[in-house]
């Protein structure tokens, strides 16, 4: 299908992009990798008057270390996330979740920040970002502000990013030496998650010292499974203990029904997959 006509602008700096956003009086959409936006435009589910393409802003790409934090440019492609040595060393959970996203073509075009800002609750990168206490750096006409992941995701396809703002960086604490696993459940390889569970644990011998668990597609936003985390800490990483902790997976969830899963089945999956994700992380 063919999108409705739109104006197009491709700024080369973040400042230019912010200015372009401020100057646009009609409805404007930001184009990152386009993997979600272009289908929407082509099906004419949206008809923005203008697209601002961030693809030429070099400063939005790449991963760097900043003390005990990693800083990920919002326009860093999934492909680059998968291969980045810093992320592989200090935030393996993000890499593992990214490995499950779509197919190689999409991973070359799609971006980490674009996926978070799109905020599809079935997207696989939201729960890991939430579980790892990522912080989102948002640029706007009033300068920059930092929003914790827990406050960033507001609702279906809705984030804390204002209409005149854009997500420019994601700051993630270093989880050096942690073990991680992303357990994705879907029906075909290239589909969105029916349910996904992101788990990272720090072990001390056989003991789970710290745990971070996030759930994909169990509410309108990603869900932090704090009940599971608390139940895991201080436990031996035995199947029984992990299964018992996973019983808390539904705290704070409000899953919906669709063609692939109804509420009861999603809830069941969330527990089973939480158990599996934590087990896989703890034994990795």
């Amino acid at each position: 299908m063919i999108p409705a006509a739109f104006d197009y602008e491709a700024p080369s700096t973040i400042d230019e992009a912010v200015r372009a956003l401020a100057e646009a009086d009609d409805e404007v959409k930001i184009l990152a990798g386009g993997q979600s936006l272009l289908p929407v435009l082509r099906m004419r589910l949206a008809a923005p008057a203008k697209l601002i393409d961030l693809g030429r802003i070099g400063e939005l790409r790449g991963v760097r270390s900043d003390g005990d934090m990693l800083v990920i440019g919002a326009m860093t492609s999934h492909y680059d996330v998968q291969r980045d040595p810093l992320l592989n060393e200090h935030a393996k959970l993000l890499v593992m979740a990214t490995d499950t996203v779509a197919d190689p073509q999409v991973r070359h075009r799609g971006t980490f920040g674009g996926s978070l800002a799109h905020a599809d609750p079935a997207g696989d990168l939201l729960a890991p970002a939430l579980a790892l206490d990522a912080e989102m750096v948002i640029a706007g006409p009033r300068g920059r502000r930092t929003v914790p992941a827990a406050e960033f995701f507001v609702d279906y396809f809705t984030t804390a990013v204002g209409e005149d703002e854009l997500l420019c960086e994601i700051r993630v604490p270093k989880y050096t030496g942690w073990h991680a696993h992303y357990e994705k459940f879907n029906r075909v390889a290239q589909a969105w998650s029916i349910v996904g569970v992101a788990a990272a644990v720090r072990t001390d011998g056989h003991m789970i010292a710290e745990a971070r668990v996030g759930l994909t597609n169990m509410a309108s936003v990603p869900v932090r499974a704090r009940g599971v985390e608390q139940a895991l800490v201080g436990q031996e990483a035995t199947p029984e203990a992990i299964r018992a902790a996973a019983e808390h997976a539904l705290d704070g969830t409000s899953p919906t029904t669709d063609g692939n899963a109804d509420v009861a089945y999603r809830e069941h999956l969330a527990k089973v997959l939480t158990s599996r994700a934590v087990s896989a992380a703890a034994t990795s």
Binding site: M43, V188, A189, Q190, A191, W192, G259
Partner: peptide, 16 residues
């Protein structure tokens, strides 16, 4: 038709 796109009508690929 709620399975109106290839995102909802699941044609398997070699990976499946």
């Amino acid at each position: 038709l709620t399975s109106g796109t290839l995102a909802d009508y699941l044609v398997p690929s070699a990976a499946d």
